[in-house]
Design a protein around this nucleic acid. Sequence first.
DNA 1: CTTGTTGCAAATCGTTTGCAGGACA
DNA 2: TGTCCTGCAAACGATTTGCAACAAG
Lengths: 147, 147
Amino acid sequence: MAKSAKDKDKQIDQKLRAAGLKVTQARLSILSILSQKHGPFSADEIYQLVHASKKTAAIDKVTVYRCLTKFEELGLVSACDFGDGTARYEIKHEDHHHHHLICRICKRIEEIPLCPMDDIPLRLPKTGYKDISHRLEFFGICPKCSE
Amino acid sequence: MAKSAKDKDKQIDQKLRAAGLKVTQARLSILSILSQKHGPFSADEIYQLVHASKKTAAIDKVTVYRCLTKFEELGLVSACDFGDGTARYEIKHEDHHHHHLICRICKRIEEIPLCPMDDIPLRLPKTGYKDISHRLEFFGICPKCSE
DNA sequence: CTTGTTGCAAATCGTTTGCAGGACA
DNA sequence: TGTCCTGCAAACGATTTGCAACAAG
């Protein structure tokens, strides 16, 4: 059932066209990286990864930022923020809502497939992580701004 | 039961001494602002507020950053991050754990006195906010880093 | 005194913007 | 072709750092 890199790239191409975006080398490279590696990654990391995989032409870091912004608008990727002043991006898989658990020391990132908003308290001890804290903020439109 | 500004300042002085910090004008000004106004505030906002209240001598913005960092280490204030690239700080009141609900448009900040980690799903509709999303990340020490 | 703090200037870091040349539809 | 994209350089905003003057204990 696992998709080959080629299949994924084909999917990406189609998603871009469906979104009305031009299919450029830069966009293909970035989305290819994001769909093959396990993120989330910062813009700089993506930039590095693209350059590391010599398969594609080098792209500018500014282009990475612009593409990621566009992808996020289109819902192709989702951004997350670990509070360290750097945005991170990962491919958005429909119907797979998750959060992250980040190690304060090594920065390892694990996916938490549960969402406390759903209903149940998380049973985090399972993960083996210690000294767990969390960052949670809500965003919405306040009554006044709703008109 | 409400404490006067003077009482609060006295408390602040004691907390600083208890923490082994020198009681300086800059620190008193910042903590005084934070304990009197309803935050959270960015470093720049605090800087502006300190300058606005002509009661105290002007302090440098760098000093604001340094004091806030120190206060956070000591647990006097807590930082929060709304993902807009600016850290915000508020006085930490023991036994009053809360999160925030930020209007996407006017940036109004409301306190959410509930925490989904406690156990129950939030009943946010009560607040009148619409189109609510949330930002949630967990931090901890992973098994490998625990030794 | 003497160590912790501050102010000032300058550096850093992530990210954004302006503009001209270049690539997709 | 005409518009969308990209690269390059430069601007930006938040935060940090180096260093010498300064003030609290």
